[in-house]
Every structure is written in structure tokens, then in C-alpha cells.
Computed example of a mutant assay.
Amino acid sequence: MPSMFVADFHTHYACPAYPALPPHQAAPELVRRWHGLARRIADLDGLLAEAGRRGVDLRVLSAPPALVTPHGERTHPDDLRRLNDHLAEAVATAPQRLRGLATVDAFAGDAAAAEAVRAVRELGLSGLVVDCATDGQLLGAAAARPTLTVAAELGVPVFAHPISPAAMTLAFAGLGRFGTSLARGTINAAALLSLLVDGVLAELPGLHVVFPMLGVAGLSLAAATDEGQHITAAAPASQRAHVYLDTMGFVPAAIRFATDLLGADHVLVGGDWPIGARETSRERVETALTQAGLDEAERRLVAGANALRLVDARCVPARNSSSVITR
């Protein structure tokens, strides 16, 4: 059989002019590592070399706003444009091995939607990465609707990346790195639920939104309700919402849970490079998916086919669209 295609959907890369910042109130052990991590996040040649050594065919690059913006500040529109211009140039250096998700402040209304359109239409980027929450708002908020609407119309995925909410991060500080992850996972789960509660998934059936495994509690809670069942693989195809999980690691039981609930066609390999404790490699992916009990077809979907389908499947928006796309 031909070799399995491996894609890592959760790979961080930022323009060297915008150094990656540690999560707000991050655990001391992460802060100690951060200088080295920030250097790697800005090193495109190093990223490509490592991917080659580890047998990763495709990296989907992203720099969520909170990664490159001081806590409590909003990313300036000019900075977003520069980040996305640079990302497009970076992807163009290795188009067979890289795709890019445009950095967008989803809570900036029509201005954010306009940058999303520019990044996809003019720069050729393959999707969007957004913070899952900001300033007391979750992703389902009205301010984020223009960005989500144009993503659905353009046919590109939205990666809803975790942030570090100040109150929860402080409350969980005694747990060290687990506290940092728990706070980020909790707000990520809440953002997922907000798409359900605020009617976004029903309003935008063409929206494809990816959450990391860190926010799996939101998926679990939603799937346990009647209104949330349309997220799962059990929903009729015509009614199924397109919510995806990236594995954010290589725990077979977690991968099995995600594929059982969402279907193998809605789960993606993600390593949170270079922050994740276990970096993506072909051997690690194949071992984890096999131990999760996936059959060959399912393994191929999760390993890379799903990611490739998402980042390469753009559609032409409807002519009668009233969104920013047609303005």
C-alpha cells in the first residue's frame, strides 16, 4: 500500500518581527522553555528540516492573535496584514509542504471579515486562525459573526485556538502546567458551546471549525444533549454540523473517543508544534492511530486526508451573498 500521508494541522509559525509570547500567567516551567520555543516558532527553515526528518508531509501554519499580542491588547489591523503577508510568502517557499491559516481578530466585526477575505482571495491562504474568546466574549458572539460568515462562504476552515483567561489561569495556578492547560481548555470548551447556544452552527451550515482536543469537554457536553447531537457522526448528513477536533497530542484513548463521537472524517492530527510535549512524527502518528483501534481507511483520514481536504477545498460564494465578500 502507498505510504500514509501525514499532516499536522496544529503547527505554530510567526513572522520573526512578531515574536511569540508565552500564555498569560503561564506555569513557570513553560516560561523557562519559552525563549527556545519562540526562536523555533520563527524559524521556518528549522521547521521544514524537522518535518522532513520526522516524516511529516504537510504542516498547516498558524499564529493565533494571542500568540503574538501582549495580554490585554488587541492585534492592530496593520499588524494582522503584515503577519498574513509574511505567512503567504513563507508558504510560497514550500507549497507542497506548507499551508497557512491567516491570523484574524474575529471579534473586530466587518474589518476582520475583510482581512479574512483578503488573506484567502488575494494571498492564497487556506483558512483562518482566531482566538476562541476575548474581552469577555466567546466565539459565538455577534462581533465574530462576520468573520465566521465569510469563512463559511469562502469554504475555508476556522481554527479556534485557546487563550489564557486571567481569572481561571490565576485560580488554577497551583496546578502548574496542568492549571495552564485546564484554564485554556475550559475557555476553549465554552467557545465551542457558544457556537451551539448562540445559533451559529445552525445559521452557518457551511462553517467548518476546528477545536483542539484541549476543548473536548465542550464537545462532550454538547453531544449529550438533543440540540447538540447534530455535531456528531450520528446526525444525518444534511443536518450535520462541521465541528472538528485536532488530536493535540497522541493519546490513543482520546483519539478513539473523538472518532467515535465525531467520525474519523472530523478528526485531525495536531501536535501543537513546537509547544506540545510530544512532537509529531510519522512513527508516532501511525502508532497512536493503530493503538486507537482505527482501521486503515480511518487512519488515513485522521493522519492527513482530512486536513488536506479542509485546507484545499475552497468554494465559490453564492452570487446573492450579502456578506463582505460581495462588497
Score class of each variant (00 low, 15 high):
residue 1 M to T: 13
residue 3 S to M: 10
residue 12 H to E: 15
residue 14 A to D: 13
residue 15 C to T: 12
residue 17 A to D: 15
residue 20 A to L: 04
residue 23 P to M: 10
residue 24 H to T: 12
residue 27 A to Y: 08
residue 29 E to P: 08
residue 34 W to I: 11
residue 37 L to G: 09
residue 43 D to N: 14
residue 43 D to H: 10
residue 43 D to M: 10
residue 45 D to I: 06
residue 48 L to A: 14
residue 52 G to I: 07
residue 55 G to W: 07
residue 57 D to L: 09
residue 70 P to S: 10
residue 71 H to N: 07
residue 72 G to K: 11
residue 73 E to L: 15
residue 73 E to H: 13
residue 77 P to C: 03
residue 77 P to T: 07
residue 78 D to Q: 13
residue 79 D to W: 06
residue 80 L to C: 14
residue 83 L to S: 07
residue 84 N to I: 00
residue 89 E to Q: 15
residue 91 V to R: 02
residue 92 A to K: 06
residue 92 A to M: 09
residue 95 P to F: 10
residue 98 L to V: 14
residue 99 R to H: 12
residue 99 R to A: 11
residue 100 G to A: 07
residue 102 A to W: 00
residue 104 V to S: 04
residue 106 A to N: 03
residue 108 A to C: 11
residue 111 A to C: 04
residue 119 A to W: 05
residue 123 L to D: 09
residue 124 G to I: 06
residue 125 L to Q: 04
residue 129 V to N: 03
residue 131 D to W: 03
residue 131 D to M: 06
residue 131 D to T: 09
residue 132 C to A: 05
residue 135 D to W: 04
residue 137 Q to T: 05
residue 139 L to C: 05
residue 142 A to I: 06
residue 142 A to E: 15
residue 143 A to Q: 13
residue 145 R to W: 05
residue 158 V to M: 01
residue 161 H to Y: 05
residue 161 H to R: 02
residue 162 P to S: 01
residue 167 A to W: 03
residue 171 A to H: 00
residue 172 F to H: 03
residue 173 A to R: 10
residue 175 L to N: 12
residue 176 G to D: 03
residue 177 R to P: 02
residue 178 F to L: 07
residue 179 G to M: 02
residue 181 S to T: 05
residue 181 S to V: 09
residue 182 L to Q: 04
residue 189 A to Q: 00
residue 189 A to D: 03
residue 189 A to T: 01
residue 190 A to D: 00
residue 195 L to Y: 00
residue 198 D to A: 09
residue 202 A to T: 08
residue 214 L to A: 02
residue 215 G to T: 02
residue 222 A to V: 11
residue 227 E to W: 10
residue 229 Q to S: 08
residue 234 A to N: 11
residue 235 A to S: 07
residue 236 P to D: 13
residue 240 R to F: 08
residue 241 A to N: 01
residue 241 A to S: 11
residue 252 P to G: 08
residue 256 R to M: 09
residue 256 R to K: 12
residue 259 T to Y: 13
residue 262 L to N: 04
residue 264 A to S: 15
residue 271 G to R: 08
residue 276 G to T: 12
residue 276 G to N: 14
residue 278 R to Q: 12
residue 281 S to Y: 09
residue 283 E to S: 13
residue 284 R to Y: 10
residue 300 R to K: 12
residue 307 A to M: 12
residue 308 L to W: 05
residue 312 D to Q: 14
residue 318 A to R: 11
residue 318 A to S: 14
residue 322 S to W: 10
residue 324 V to H: 04
residue 327 R to F: 13
